[in-house]
C-alpha cells in the first residue's frame, strides 16, 4: 500500500469516526438530522461536480440530469420491491451510463460551448421526464415511509457517501488522470500534444462525476421520499452546484466541502429570512465571488489554518 493510499484510508476512517462522534449532536432532533442529510448531499454533489468542473475546467450546468436519473432509478426500483439501499449501485450505474451517453459527444466542446450544450441536454431531459407516465409524469413519485429506515441509518449512509466522494476526489486529483485533466484545463492543445488523451480522460472523469451524482440522487430519494421532475431534473439544482464549488474554491479537494457547508448555511439561515430576495442574493454572491474572490473561500481558510499552526507551533 502506498503512503498516499494509507493516508487516504486513515483520513477516511478519521472523518467517519469524527462524524460518528458528532452523530448524537446532529441526530438530536428531526431538523438537525435533516440538516446533516442535506450537508452530506451537498458535499457529494459538489465534489462530484468539481471533478469535471474544477479539475478539467469544464463547467456543467446539466448535472441535474444525472441527479434525476439516480433519484428515479432508486425510486422506481424501490417501488418495484427492492430494498432502497440496494438500489444505490443501480442509481450510480444508470447515471454513469446516461452521463457517458451525452458527455461523450458534448465533452469534445470546450468552455462556454460545453456549458451551453449541458443546459440543452438537461432541459430536454427535464421536459421528457415530465412526460413519462410510467414514472409518474409531472406529479412525480411518492415513496413509502419505512420504519427501519431511521435517521441513524440515513445519517450513516450519507456520511459514508460524502466521505467516499471526497476521497475519490483526492485520489483523482493525485492520479495520472487528474494531472492530465489539469493540463487540459490550462491548455488543451499543449496537453494533447504532450500525449494526454484529451477525449478519453474527460469522458472517464465525467463517468465518475455522473456515478457520484447518481448516488446523490438515490440518497436524496431515500431521505425525502418524494421525487418530482421539476425538482430533481431542475435547472436550479444544477446552478446550486456551480455556486457551492465557486464559493468554496474551484479545482481543490476541500473547496467543494467548504462550499457545500457555506451554501447550506446561507440557504437555511440567511435566506430563510430573506425568502423574497434569495435569487438576487445568490446572483449578487456569484458576481461578488467572480469579481473579488475568484478562488473562493478555500485559500483564505488554508491561510487561516497556517496562521493558527504557526501560533501554536
Amino acid at each position: 500500500m502506498s503512503s498516499f493510499a494509507r493516508r487516504q484510508v486513515l483520513l477516511g476512517v478519521g472523518a467517519l469516526g469524527g462524524l460518528a462522534l458528532l452523530a448524537p449532536l446532529l441526530l438530536a432532533n428531526p431538523y438537525s438530522s435533516r440538516l446533516a442529510q442535506l450537508l452530506f448531499l451537498n458535499v457529494l454533489l459538489a465534489s462530484a461536480w468539481n471533478l469535471v468542473g474544477g479539475f478539467a475546467g469544464q463547467i456543467s450546468f446539466g448535472n441535474a440530469s444525472l441527479f434525476g436519473v439516480g433519484a428515479y432509478a432508486t425510486s422506481m426500483l424501490w417501488l418495484a420491491g427492492f430494498h432502497p439501499f440496494f438500489t444505490m449501485p443501480a442509481a450510480a450505474v444508470l447515471a454513469a451510463l446516461y452521463g457517458v451517453a451525452w458527455g461523450w459527444p458534448c465533452l469534445r466542446l470546450r468552455g462556454p460551448y460545453f456549458a451551453i450544450a449541458t443546459i440543452g441536454v438537461a432541459e430536454a431531459t427535464r421536459i421528457v421526464a415530465n412526460h413519462i407516465e410510467a414514472a409518474g409524469g409531472a406529479s412525480g413519485l411518492t415513496l413509502p415511509l419505512e420504519e427501519d429506515l431511521g435517521p441513524v441509518l440515513l445519517y450513516a449512509l450519507g456520511a459514508v457517501l460524502a466521505v467516499a466522494a471526497v476521497l475519490v476526489s483526492a485520489a483523482v486529483r493525485r492520479s495520472r488522470l487528474g494531472l492530465g485533466l489539469i493540463a487540459l484545463r490550462e491548455d488543451a492543445q499543449a496537453a494533447a500534444a504532450s500525449g494526454v488523451n484529451v477525449a478519453r480522460q474527460q469522458v472517464t472523469v465525467f463517468a465518475i462525476t455522473a456515478a457520484l451524482t447518481g448516488l446523490a440522487g438515490g440518497y436524496y430519494a431515500v431521505f425525502t421520499l418524494y421525487v418530482v421532475p421539476e425538482k430533481v431534473f431542475g435547472f436550479d439544482l444544477s446552478i446550486s452546484l456551480v455556486l457551492m464549488v465557486l464559493v468554496g474554491g474551484i479545482g481543490t479537494v476541500m473547496g467543494p466541502v467548504l462550499g457545500a457547508g457555506i451554501y447550506l448555511f446561507l440557504e437555511q439561515f440567511v435566506l430563510a429570512s430573506l425568502a423574497d430576495i434569495h435569487l438576487a442574493a445568490f446572483g449578487a454572491l456569484l458576481i461578488f465571488i467572480i469579481l473579488l474572490e475568484p478562488r473562493g473561500a478555500a485559500p483564505r481558510v488554508a491561510q487561516f489554518v497556517r496562521l493558527i499552526r504557526r501560533r501554536a507551533g
Binding site: G111, L246, L279, F282, G283, L286, I287, I290
Partner: peptide, 27 residues
Amino acid sequence: RLRDSPPVTTLLLLFGVWLIVRNALYL
C-alpha cells in the same frame, strides 16, 4: 472588468445578473 478572464467566468457573471433581474421582476 473581466476582459482578460476565461469566457466561462463572464458567462457565470452574467448569470448572476440574470438572477438579480429575475428576482427584481418577481418583486
